[in-house]
Amino acid sequence: MLEIREIYKNYEGRPLLQGISFAVQAGETVCLLGESGSGKSTLLRIIAGLEAAESGSIWWDGEEISDMPAHKRGFGLMFQDYALFPHRTVEQNVAFGLRMLGLPRAEVEARTRAALGIIRMEDFAKRAVTELSGGEQQRVALARALAPNPRLLMLDEPLGALDHALRVQLIAELRSILHASAKPAIYVTHDREEAFGLADTLMLLHQGRIVQAGTTAQLFRQPANAWAAGFLGLGTLLSGSVVGLEPLRVKTALGVLQASACGQEWQVGGAAQLLLRPRDALVLHGMPEGENQFSACVVDCLFMGETYQSHLRANDFSFSIQTDRALAPGSDVTIAFPPERVSCLKGEL
């Protein structure tokens, strides 16, 4: 349905977006995940028609809409700080888009009520939006964006300003509303939890490019490079250089470790980052003697409810592991990372 081709955009003379291309299918929720300043909001505003790209094009159902003004695109955008009209009531805010469609009054009223019903705020219809709490404003903004039945819904960090407990609750609510509406949606956030909770397809934006796109499971299992693994918080990264190819062996601060090539080409002497996932660590008895085994000192051990998280130190390298049993701080333990579980990745952090 929506197709973005080769979007380039500069910000204050420096390249911000460098050739962004992707597509959004019917009913799909795409999450754009990136650090603040990565240009993800700008990309959203370019798709919305609020900003112009240096080059590239935007297509909808095979028709180019790059030069179409924002108010004719029929896209809904939910702003980061909601941008509710302060001079209008809750009801009037939600009705705004319906009025712009030129619908008869009765229909405007009926659909406004329906939209307020979806967010369960019928009782707030006559309130001033300035009296609402953050969570209530967020829901009104969602209802306002959904009410005119846009062909694409875009959400710019819609939960950014809310506290954690409310966010968890609203992620679930948003997911059910997005699925019920069956609309294609683009959701922009810097928060992994939100992205994992909502995305059908997850896209990582870094240094103006899409680093990786895929389902959450794909990204989790197979991060495209070291930055993606670090940004997604998959584990500790250990840098080293390749010393052997079959099997892949990497020289690191913890000695020479065997790792999975992750389907990439490697050369002896090439730089690599090893991803050590906390769940994959095995705590062994006795001295280290096999492949991928080394001894480490337990710095501290935290009780996390189901499991224990321990911070360890070996040869001045710090990493953390997750275990079912507690480890005694100050003690020395032998750690093993099974070779097939250690991902060898390219790129800087």
């Binding site: 919305a48 028609g49 609020l50 003004p69 924002a70 108010h71 004719k72 029929g74 896209f75 809904g76 955008l77 702003f79 700080d81 941008a83 509710l84 009209f85 302060p86 705004f96 888009g97 712009m100 469609l101 306002r144 964006a145 005119p148």
Partner: peptide, 19 residues
């Protein structure tokens, strides 16, 4: 004046005159 308000109106289908 918060420009996001006029942009929000635009996104809801308001032409410049209506904005």
């Amino acid at each position: 004046l918060d420009q996001k308000l006029t942009q929000a109106a635009q996104m809801l289908g308001a032409n410049p005159w209506q904005v």
